[in-house]
Amino acid sequence: MSKRRPYVRPMDGWWRKNPYFVEYMIHEGTALFVAAYAAVLLFGLLRLAQGEAAWNGWLLALKSPWSIGFHLLALAAIGYHAYTWFKIMPRTMPPLVVGGKRLPAWAITGGGLAAAGAASLLLFVLVWGLAR
């Protein structure tokens, strides 16, 4: 094997030098919160399968300040994920042609955000109706 060591430009922290990439890393980073929240739900589901005492222990754990703090952060992160998901949707989905004209980016983003708002409201009303 050869001993030569070609120069490799260091790439450490490359994304910190450009606000565009900082934003990119933040919106990719929201996946950590999506994973963590799914893990919290999965843990709750496993506790539910173990019976009432186990479930009540999980409910109690949700009331701890650490849990509330985590969920506030997760709400911000997943909320930001939702916003960026629809913001980049004009570039991630195939072009949509309506009436012979390509649907503008703002319409796709706006439509997505409106759908998210409507779905969230519907979910809240459903939960409220089921729990009443």
């Binding site: 929240y37 919290v40 506030l72 998210a116």
Partner: peptide, 29 residues
């Protein structure tokens, strides 16, 4: 997660544990 994620986090992680807006036994066993 974009459509329902934020509201789910709010319901299961904030509203129900703190007793906000929804009935106290929303997530009872």
């Amino acid at each position: 997660s974009a459509l329902l994620g934020p509201m789910l986090v709010f319901i299961t992680g904030i509203a129900v544990p703190l007793g906000l807006l929804l009935p106290a036994d929303t997530m009872s066993y």
